[in-house]
Simulated assay, not measured.
Amino acid sequence: MNTKDVLDAFEMLDTWEARYELIGDLSRELLPVAESEKTDANLVKGCNTQTWLTGNLTDDDPPLIEYRADAETPLVRGLVALLLVPFQRKSPEAVLETDPRPYIAGIGLAEHLSANRRAGMEHFIERVFQIAQHLRRQ
């Protein structure tokens, strides 16, 4: 799914129960993190639920980032998948130019999360940018 697909789906789904079901479905689209990658270096600091995020460049021309993620709970895995939509399979430069705020506002996510989950979301997005910055230098 791309950001437009997600925004359209959230607009069509009139209850948060239905939206959470979609978020759960998105978790199945996550590229998996290998057990060997579930290290402190790939742990997203600031998340209450253990969440791992890593990324590699593809062989495409130009190279694109493929983010891989996992979390301890199904809900957080779904939220992670939802947050990765605007960034997945973009060049490091495009990721760094992406402002996720309109996307997050468009789906109304921030106001439906607890303060702890909102803080975790911000830490997760910060980690997305850190990975892009690192991969841009390669």
Results as ranks from 00 to 15, higher is better:
residue 18 A to N: 13
residue 57 L to I: 03
residue 110 A to L: 14
residue 31 L to R: 09
residue 119 A to K: 15
residue 113 L to Y: 13
residue 84 L to Q: 09
residue 67 Y to P: 09
residue 26 L to N: 03
residue 57 L to T: 03
residue 58 T to V: 04
residue 96 L to F: 08
residue 100 P to D: 08
residue 37 E to V: 01
residue 39 T to L: 14
residue 78 G to I: 02
residue 29 E to W: 03
residue 52 W to T: 01
residue 120 G to Q: 14
residue 22 L to C: 05
residue 51 T to S: 09
residue 67 Y to N: 05
residue 23 I to P: 07
residue 64 L to D: 04
residue 132 A to R: 14
residue 61 D to Q: 14
residue 138 Q to R: 15
residue 94 A to S: 10
residue 56 N to S: 14
residue 81 A to D: 08
residue 44 V to I: 05
residue 15 T to E: 02
residue 106 G to F: 05
residue 48 N to M: 11
residue 51 T to A: 05
residue 40 D to L: 09
residue 110 A to T: 15
residue 55 G to D: 00
residue 35 E to C: 00
residue 33 V to C: 10
residue 66 E to K: 05
residue 99 D to P: 11
residue 127 R to G: 14
residue 75 L to M: 06
residue 98 T to C: 11
residue 119 A to H: 15
residue 48 N to C: 01
residue 42 N to Y: 02
residue 62 P to F: 01
residue 11 E to V: 08
residue 67 Y to R: 04
residue 31 L to E: 10
residue 82 L to M: 13
residue 123 H to Y: 12
residue 79 L to A: 03
residue 7 L to N: 01
residue 117 R to H: 11
residue 30 L to T: 08
residue 95 V to P: 04
residue 64 L to N: 02
residue 34 A to I: 05
residue 62 P to G: 00
residue 66 E to Y: 04
residue 22 L to D: 04
residue 133 Q to L: 14
residue 123 H to S: 15
residue 64 L to E: 12
residue 88 Q to F: 08
residue 49 T to I: 04
residue 127 R to S: 14
